[in-house]
Nucleic acid binder design. Sequence first.
DNA 1: GCATCCATGTAACCAGTTACATGATTTG
DNA 2: CAAATCATGTAACTGGTTACATGGATGC
Lengths: 208, 208
Amino acid sequence: MIDIAILGLLKEHDLHGYELRKRLVELPGSRPAVSFGSLYPALGRLERAGYVKAVTHETSPTPAAPMSGSLAGELAAFRAHRQSAGTTDRGSRGKKVYGLTDTGEQRLHELLVETEVADDRGFEARVAFCHLLTTAERLALFEARRGELVRRRDLANRPTVADDGQTIYVRSLLERDAAAIAADLAWLDLLISSERARKDGAGNGGEQ
Amino acid sequence: MIDIAILGLLKEHDLHGYELRKRLVELPGSRPAVSFGSLYPALGRLERAGYVKAVTHETSPTPAAPMSGSLAGELAAFRAHRQSAGTTDRGSRGKKVYGLTDTGEQRLHELLVETEVADDRGFEARVAFCHLLTTAERLALFEARRGELVRRRDLANRPTVADDGQTIYVRSLLERDAAAIAADLAWLDLLISSERARKDGAGNGGEQ
DNA sequence: GCATCCATGTAACCAGTTACATGATTTG
DNA sequence: CAAATCATGTAACTGGTTACATGGATGC
């Protein structure tokens, strides 16, 4: 699911691996820190697949507006640019600034709407870039997640087979888990209702 | 960290793989369900390491008291026993009931007190069997976890580098994460204080 | 006697990790 | 010029997963 994060970040601006990783770590859900050993191979894979591509010269000096935010990104791109366009062609090991291709953009959207994978980290990664979705798609994402959480909750406080000598610690742990799921569910419901409001906001004001 | 769970469950009673797995799934922190493809190889590994051992005949028909709880476990052991000791010798593929060896018990304790690995699942697995620890060891486990959570919290609401155009979704996600950590911390603090009370309970009644 | 669960295992794969090797650039 | 940081990458390993192969026992 590192793919979502990479494609999502590259959608915002072109970046090289090192910088990409710094952003990756401070993205919700990518604990404890995605390592270079997984980042670079992933970039290579995405490049081979045609989703990203090394942008060497001034293909896109990050259009215009984005200068407002993210100085670091601009700087990285600028420096890389200067280096490659400047002297010769950059030695074997220079910065390699990646950008999203058209198919990469498609791929990102594809990954974002894929509700099958109910994985926690995957969900967080999707939410982090869900502003790229339509309201309906976002709603679908949230509701799929909701289903998953409900499933987990029901699974948790069901039969309790063979739980004879549960220690107080296990019980406490189970309670904590239940509380965490409940809190998550409440959070999701808020998101969902706000999304619903957005959807049929202008049209009609029914259904909370 | 499947090792902790396996050893911990086998400490309670001898079990064969299939039954073990059923218990494993309803253990907190072993989402979404440990698969056979990881369970059996793990058992093999633990057996080769000498931590567990297949108990075939009446080596230990689960001593005496444990009959009180866990009917399923007793049944499984009994059936396996009957089968092996009963007819011939059981075909190539019969139930294989595993038990914990002495070194396995040591190993379990070792894994339980190992506070280095700050992994979430690892922590849950340890708590699930922390009744096997002394109060002091348990306290150390909880406090190590607390340190880890504090570290995460501080990491989360620090610099916020390059967070220019954070969408409402990312912000919401970060808030949720922060709330989850706070809740976890509160839960832990409760555990810790109750553990402290237990420790110096008889001696003096200070410090809540 | 057929389906279904119980039961054990292997093989191929997956998504990541750590440790290592390498080198360029910046800064004190 | 040395140390720190930036930067890219490979190799070996980890801790699992799914899919597959196999077969015994039970229930209807």
